[in-house]
């Protein structure tokens, strides 16, 4: 019982119409109470993994092989309707861009409360109470005023707090956080990151945390998957990855993060030559198979 993962992705392949594989044989697990970081360059397919789990892949992109187990449910074997119902009860999302993640023409209150009523079957009073409680928890003052506001009346940081509150409100088993701090400025980033970590620890929710920043990986996660061109390059405990990276790409990513590289060395971005080299290797492998 204890070692059954909350999320278990087994050799998932996701294909774009026309045949291009955006993810290839991706496997990863998130254990209950664990934060799994997912790093990689832009376009590696990090968001694609989150979307495949949550069932929000664009219509021209389909999971073609492999399995996704969410809390023992075989998602890929389900009909769309049951899949959506299952996922919405178990998982939620903290999206990347707080500007577009809230519907601009709807007030904050209903946007938090409605899913609690419709999906989780709570009474309106209970849902409202829970929304207030969580807004309090994410340090929003004037919760009543915020519930009555439209998204554009709040700052970016406030909106991200609202989204965090909304994600944690139904006490989900899994939260997918897709670069939840990239759109924010540095000081706000730190607060938001701390908030997510605190709430995660209090609730014991499993989190799949997408980022491209090894500094964030070190702060928040217990395990990490390194993704490159839709493949998992490395999967290890966060500590081990920093101490002893197994893959040259991981090494380069760590070196590219100022506070974790050798302080005497100057900051160095991931060398383009290395990326080109890896892409060439992958292309060769693909041609061979």
């Amino acid at each position: 019982m204890t070692d059954r993962p909350t999320l278990d992705i087994l050799q998932l392949t996701v294909t774009l119409r026309g045949g291009r594989k955006l993810l290839r044989d991706v496997s990863l697990k998130v254990q209950p109470g664990e934060v799994r970081a997912l790093v990689g360059e832009s376009g590696a397919g990090k968001s694609m993994i989150g979307k495949a789990v949550l069932g929000i892949l664009p219509p021209n992109i389909k999971p073609t092989e492999g399995e996704i187990l969410l809390d023992t449910h075989h998602l890929n074997a389900m009909t769309p309707v049951t899949r959506r119902r299952t996922v919405s009860k178990i998982a939620s999302l903290i999206p990347q861009d707080p500007l577009t993640a809230l519907n601009p023409v709807r007030k904050i209150g209903p946007q938090i409360v409605d899913p609690l009523i419709h999906i989780h079957g709570w009474s309106r009073d209970k849902a409202r109470e829970r929304a207030r409680e969580l807004l309090d928890r994410v340090q929003i003052r004037n919760t009543d005023r915020v519930l009555q506001s439209y998204p554009h009346e709040l700052s970016g940081g406030m909106r991200q707090r609202v989204l965090i509150a909304s994600a944690f409100a139904p006490s989900p088993r899994l939260i997918v956080a897709d670069e939840p701090t990239t759109a924010l400025d540095v000081t706000v980033q730190k607060q938001i990151l701390r908030l997510i970590r605190e709430l995660q620890q209090e609730t014991g929710t499993a989190v799949l945390f997408v980022t491209h920043d090894m500094g964030v990986v070190a702060k928040i996660s217990q395990r990490v998957s390194v993704l490159f061109a839709g493949r998992v390059m490395e999967d290890a405990a966060t500590e081990d990855v920093f101490r002893n990276p197994q893959h040259p790409y991981t090494e380069a990513l760590i070196a590219a993060t100022p506070s974790y590289s050798d302080l005497n060395r100057s900051f160095s971005p991931v060398p383009p030559a290395l990326i080109a080299d890896l892409h060439a290797k992958i292309a060769a492998e693909e041609a061979a198979s």
Partner: peptide
């Protein structure tokens, strides 16, 4: 992203269109 959020929140495609996008 709010459309994705509505979908994860369990909304059907047609109701997402009518109640999230149309307004």
């Amino acid at each position: 992203d709010y459309v994705d959020s509505a979908r994860i929140g369990g909304a059907r495609r047609i109701s997402t269109l009518v109640s999230e996008i149309l307004p």
